[in-house]
Structure formats: structure tokens, C-alpha cells
């Protein structure tokens, strides 16, 4: 950050003023770097401590005082994996997330393409509905759906859960893919049409290869939305609990090892996710909603 001294109007700055100016600049620079470093530590250090806990023996996890250096003992992780219900919950989380990914990308991509490439009556209304979904606490909709799912036989199924998760992820998928397709010049498609492609051929020969990294990113995003979601998962699953539902419902009952190891497993996709999507981070929230 730059700070101006108040003597800039003088025609000939004295050496004193110049020295003053550079030293203020130095102070600001030092402050800048140290606060950036502090904020980096603020984000990373708690994660580091979770890793320390998850990679310690059971004695250490439950003991006190704690060391700040990991033992690299797999006892806690092994205990977690063998804990009753964990493996099933892990599998359920993966399945629900995969379903969510498929539904939201499968439905969202065509809609995103329509928003990016066509002008049609009702386009603004459609965009409004998409944006509106973000102005509501979507997980709450699991409450009525729990009742409806019982009626249609989808209660306590991963498919039913992933439908709710997809309704969370779909609006994002539409907005992300729309901005993705907007970024691909329409002339590329037109060139393909003129060179002999029909619309579909032009899409998969030209648009698809160019959009693929972005589509992957939004698929991963849908995956993480489902993977992380707690409320709907806890409300909608009983025997087929996902990992988040499992952890939240056995909070008081389960030992500390399960919590910390579970916490580590939960955040692993997050790290991967941000690495994959970092280029698309900004189109992700459909921020061009002006």
C-alpha cells in the first residue's frame, strides 16, 4: 500500500522530506508483508493442527498437553476407518456427490449454453430464478422434501439426497457454464458450421474441448457442495448416512479420534477442489450479475 506524505505540493522536496517519504514507504511495506504472512498463517495453521491430531496415536489425541509436531502415527486414521459405519458413510458420501455432479452438470450445461448463445423470450426470468435460488437457504428445502420423499419412496436414499444437493449445485453449474461458454468466441462455432458441422458436431468438436477444463472445475465444485453439505444430509438419511451426517449425529457418542480423522478426510477434497478450480474461482459465483 502506498502512503503519500503531505508535502507533495512543495516545488523542491528537501532531502529530509524525501528520506521521510522512503522510510514511511518502508514501514508500510513491512506492515503489508507481515499482515499478509499473518493471514496466511491464520488460514493454514488450524489446518496444520488438524493434521497433527489426525496423524497422532490415540493416546496423544486424547492426552494433554499436546505437541505441535505430528508423530506420523496412523493409529487414529486406522481407528477411524475401522470404526463402525465410517466406511459405509464414506462410500455414501462419494456416491451422493457423484450423483450430484452428474445431475447438476448434465442439466446445467445445456442451460448455461442457452444463456450464453441465445437471446430468447424469458431469458431474464430464467436468470432471475437461478439467482433467486441463491437468496434462499436451500438446505431448508430438505424439510418438506423429507416428507415428499417418504410418499414417493425416495426417503433415506442417496439418490433422493443428491437431488437436493443438485438443487444446490445446479444454479452454480448454470452460471459457471454460461460464463464459460461466453468466453468461447461464437466465431469459432460459426467457422465450424461453415466448414461443414451441424450444431451438435460444432459443439463437441470445437466448444467441448475448449470448455472441458472449466466443465471439470464446475463438476468438482458440485462434488464439493454435496460432499460438504450437512443439514439436508442429516435430515434425509437415516441408514444411508453420508460422512457429514454420520459425524454430526454421532458427535457426542464418538471418540475424539473419529472426529479429527473424519475432519481430515472431509477437508481433503477441499484442497484438491481449490487447486482444480483456482482459474475459475471468479466465474464460479456468477459475479457478473450486474
Amino acid at each position: 500500500m502506498k502512503m503519500d506524505t503531505n508535502n507533495q505540493r512543495e516545488s523542491e522536496p528537501t532531502p529530509d522530506v524525501v528520506a521521510n517519504y522512503t522510510s514511511t514507504k518502508k514501514v508500510w511495506r513491512w506492515l503489508f508483508i507481515s499482515s499478509a504472512a499473518f493471514l496466511i498463517a491464520w488460514v493454514l495453521f488450524p489446518i496444520y493442527l488438524l493434521v497433527v491430531s489426525a496423524l497422532s496415536s490415540a493416546d496423544v489425541v486424547n492426552g494433554w498437553p499436546k505437541s505441535f509436531i505430528p508423530e506420523f502415527d496412523l493409529e487414529t486414521m486406522t481407528f477411524f476407518m475401522n470404526y463402525y459405519g465410517v466406511l459405509a458413510a464414506l462410500k455414501n458420501s462419494l456416491v451422493a456427490a457423484a450423483f450430484t455432479m452428474i445431475i447438476s452438470i448434465g442439466l446445467g450445461t445445456p442451460a448455461g449454453y442457452a444463456l450464453a448463445r441465445f437471446d430468447f423470450w424469458g431469458k431474464e426470468a430464467f436468470r432471475m430464478i437461478i439467482l433467486l435460488t441463491r437468496a434462499f437457504p436451500m438446505p431448508l428445502l430438505a424439510l418438506p422434501l423429507a416428507v415428499i420423499f417418504i410418499q414417493v419412496g425416495l426417503d433415506d436414499t442417496l439418490f433422493g439426497l443428491s437431488l437436493v444437493h443438485a438443487s444446490l449445485a445446479l444454479p452454480f453449474a448454470v452460471l459457471i457454464t454460461a460464463s464459460l461458454f461466453l468466453g468461447i468466441p461464437v466465431e469459432l462455432e460459426e467457422a465450424a458450421w461453415v466448414l461443414g458441422c451441424n450444431r451438435w458436431q460444432a459443439f463437441y468438436k470445437v466448444v467441448m474441448p475448449l470448455a472441458l477444463p472449466g466443465l471439470t472445475a464446475s463438476a468438482v465444485f458440485a462434488f464439493v457442495i454435496s460432499w460438504n453439505e450437512v443439514f439436508a444430509a442429516a435430515v434425509l438419511t437415516i441408514n444411508n448416512q453420508t460422512l457429514t451426517a454420520f459425524l454430526v449425529q454421532s458427535l457426542s457418542a464418538s471418540p475424539a479420534e473419529v472426529k479429527f480423522a473424519g475432519g481430515l478426510i472431509l477437508i481433503l477434497p477441499a484442497l484438491l477442489f481449490l487447486y482444480v478450480v483456482r482459474k475459475y474461482l471468479f466465474s464460479m459465483w456468477g459475479i457478473s450479475n450486474r
Binding site: L49, K66, W227, N228, F260, A270
Partner: peptide, 25 residues
């Protein structure tokens, strides 16, 4: 990248992380 890492972390995981810090042990 580092500053946005928590973006992918659920509130459940965040709760667990801070429990590890603030717990009695």
C-alpha cells in the same frame, strides 16, 4: 489460493478444526 482454501471446507470440518484448538485437551 491459500486465502481461499477455507472456501472448500464445510462448517462441520471447520467446527472440528476449531474444536481441536479450543477443546479442554
Amino acid at each position: 489460493y491459500v486465502w481461499t482454501i477455507p472456501l472448500g471446507i464445510s462448517d462441520l470440518a471447520a467446527g472440528i478444526i476449531w474444536l481441536g484448538l479450543l477443546d479442554q485437551n
